Structures are given as structure tokens and as C-alpha cells.
Computed example of a mutant assay.
Amino acid sequence: MNSEDSYDQYLDTRNLSCPLPLLKAKQCLNTLSIGQVLFVQTTDPGSWNDFASYAELSKHQLVSRKKLGNTFHFLLQKGE
């Protein structure tokens, strides 16, 4: 595990436009085991709502989200 709280996989989607950050995160989540955490970094402002909506509609949990300057950080935990 790494810092930024703690996570199992890191995904850098900075400089990618909607819907690519969320699509790449979905692909990455498919490779993780249940309970593992994905840390996603993006610069797409639309991702703030996209990731929250996705977590509400999916089996995955949005553990945290924060904005640091022009970068957004998300921790998603894979659900069952």
C-alpha cells in the first residue's frame, strides 16, 4: 500500500477529458480484487460529479475526493 491515505493501485488521468478519466477508472477497478482501493488523479473538473454519481450507481464506494489546485484526487474501493 502507498500513502494518499492508502491504496492498492494508482491511475493518472491528468490532462484527459471527460469521459476518459471515469472510463479508465472503471477498467482499472475491473482488475482489482474486492476491497482493494484505486487512487485516481485527474484534471477534468467534470470528474468531481462523475465519480460521485458512479459510486452511487455502482457497487463501488467513493472513499474520498479532494481538490488540490487544478487536480482532483479520488479513492474508490472495489465492491462486490
Rank of each mutant, 00 (worst) to 15 (best):
E4T: 05
S6V: 07
S6C: 01
S6M: 03
D8F: 01
L16R: 14
C18I: 00
P19H: 04
L20P: 00
P21V: 01
L22T: 04
L23K: 09
A25G: 08
Q27S: 13
Q27W: 02
N30K: 15
N30V: 02
G35Y: 02
Q36M: 11
L38P: 03
F39G: 00
F39M: 10
V40E: 09
Q41G: 04
Q41R: 14
T42R: 08
T43S: 15
D44S: 11
S47C: 14
S47V: 07
W48L: 05
W48R: 03
W48P: 00
N49T: 10
D50C: 14
D50R: 12
D50A: 14
F51P: 09
F51I: 06
A55D: 08
E56Q: 13
E56D: 11
L57E: 13
S58C: 10
K59P: 03
K59W: 03
V63T: 12
S64F: 13
R65W: 06
K66I: 13
K66N: 15
K67W: 00
L68M: 11
G69K: 13
N70M: 09
F72G: 05
H73D: 14
L75D: 03
L76G: 06
Q77F: 09
Q77A: 13
Q77R: 15
Q77H: 10
Q77T: 09
